[in-house]
Simulated assay, not measured.
Amino acid sequence: MQIALFIEQILNGLQLGVMLFLMAAGLTLIFGVMGLINLAHGSLYMVGAFACAAVAAATGSFWLGLAASLAAAAAAGAIMEVLVIRRLYDRDHLDQVLATFALILVFSEATRWLFGSFPLYLDIPPLLQGTVPLPGGSRYQLYRLAIIGVGIAVAVGMYLLITKTRLGMRIRAGQSDRDMIGALGVDIRLLYTVVFAFGAALAGFAGALVGALQSVQVGMGEPVLILAFVVIVIGGIGSIKGALVGAILVGVTDTLGRFLLPQLFGLMMPPSQAGLVGGALASMLIYIVMAVILAVRPQGLFPAMKG
C-alpha cells in the first residue's frame, strides 16, 4: 500500500505540475516577449474558473464551460492589454508591478460584484468520472489523469506553435529584437495583443480544469501565481521548455515534500510535532530548490536563446 500511495503522490505532483505549466507558459511568453511583469495573471486564472462554472451551471455542460473559460480569459486579457498594459511596456518594472497589482483588485471586486462572495462549484463531467487501478492495489481519479494528459498535449502543441509556425517565428523574433521585427513590417502592437490573449487563455483554461477539483472563489489565482513565478525563474525566463521542466519539478517536489517529510520526521519525534515540522519545511522546499538551482545556473535551467 505504501508503494501505491507513493505512485499516487507522484501522479498528484504531475497533475499540479501541468497545471502550473499552463499558468507559467503564458506568463513566461508575456515576460519573455514584452518584458512585462504581470501580477494580474492569476486573476485571469480566476476569470477562466468563474466563466466555466457559470456557463456549466447555466447549460449543464462542462465542455461548454471549458470553451467559455478560454474565450472569457482571452477576451479579458486582450482588453486588459489594449486598455492598460500597452501603456506600461516602456515604463519601469515598479510601475508595471503597481499597475498590475491594481488590476488584481479590480478583477477581484468585479468578480465579487458579478458572482457574489460565495464560492461556486464545478462537477467533473460524467465521461471523466471514476477511477483507474494503480500498481499496488489502489485507484486513482480519472479526471486527474486527464489533466495530466491535457497538459502534455498543450506542451506539445505550444512547442509546435513556437518552432513550426509563422506566429511562433514572430514571437521568437520579438524575444530577440522587437525593434527589428517592427521595422520589417510586423504589427508589433497586434502581436503583443495576440501573445497576451493567448497567455491569458492558458491561465483561464488552467483555472477551469482545477475548478472541478476545488471551489471556485475570488482570489483563487494569487497562490498559484506565486508558484508560477517560481516555475519560470527555475526554468528560465522566456523558455517554454524551461516552463514545462520547472513546473514538473515544482509540482513533484512540493507534493512529495508534503507527503514524505512528516513521515521522515516521524522517525525522530512524536507524530504531532513531526507533522508541524515536516509541514513547515515542506512549504519551504520549492524555494530551497529554486535557490540551489539559481546558485548553480543563475539564468535558470533552460534560458531562452537570444539573437
Rank of each mutant, 00 (worst) to 15 (best):
F198R: 01
A25T: 01
I171W: 06
N12H: 12
A40D: 08
L14E: 03
A40W: 11
A58R: 02
L301N: 11
R297T: 12
F31L: 15
V84K: 11
S61N: 06
I147V: 10
G211P: 07
V33K: 01
P126M: 02
M180I: 02
L44I: 07
Y159C: 00
G235D: 04
G221F: 15
I37V: 15
A67I: 09
T59I: 09
Q217S: 13
W113G: 01
A49I: 14
F118Q: 09
M268D: 00
Q96G: 09
I181M: 07
W63T: 11
P119A: 11
Q15W: 03
R178W: 09
G242K: 13
F101H: 01
Q96N: 12
V277P: 00
L227E: 13
L66V: 04
T163I: 00
V210R: 05
I79R: 03
V150F: 14
G275V: 14
A68E: 10
G168P: 04
G174E: 11
L66G: 01
A25C: 00
F50A: 10
G219P: 05
L276V: 11
V97P: 05
L267V: 05
L120T: 03
Q299S: 14
M284D: 06
E81C: 07
S138N: 05
Y89H: 09
V245E: 02
I30E: 04
C52S: 12
T131L: 05
I152G: 05
A146T: 07
F115D: 10
L294C: 04
M268L: 08
I85H: 03
P298Y: 06
A206L: 04
Q263T: 10
G246L: 10
L94P: 07
A304F: 07
G65Y: 10
L14Q: 06
L256M: 14
L145P: 05
Q214E: 14
T163P: 00
L134M: 05
M23Q: 01
Q129V: 02
I286L: 12
V97E: 13
P133K: 07
M158H: 02
V195S: 00
G246K: 13
L267R: 12
L244T: 08
P298L: 06
V186H: 14
M284A: 15
V195W: 06
L184K: 09
V230M: 14
Q96D: 11
L256C: 02
D95K: 03
G185A: 07
G204Q: 01
M46F: 02
L70Y: 00
A208W: 11
Q2C: 00
S61E: 03
A274N: 08
P303S: 07
G32Y: 08
F265H: 07
V231L: 02
A24Y: 08
L44P: 01
L202A: 02
P262W: 15
A155F: 15
A200Y: 06
G238T: 09
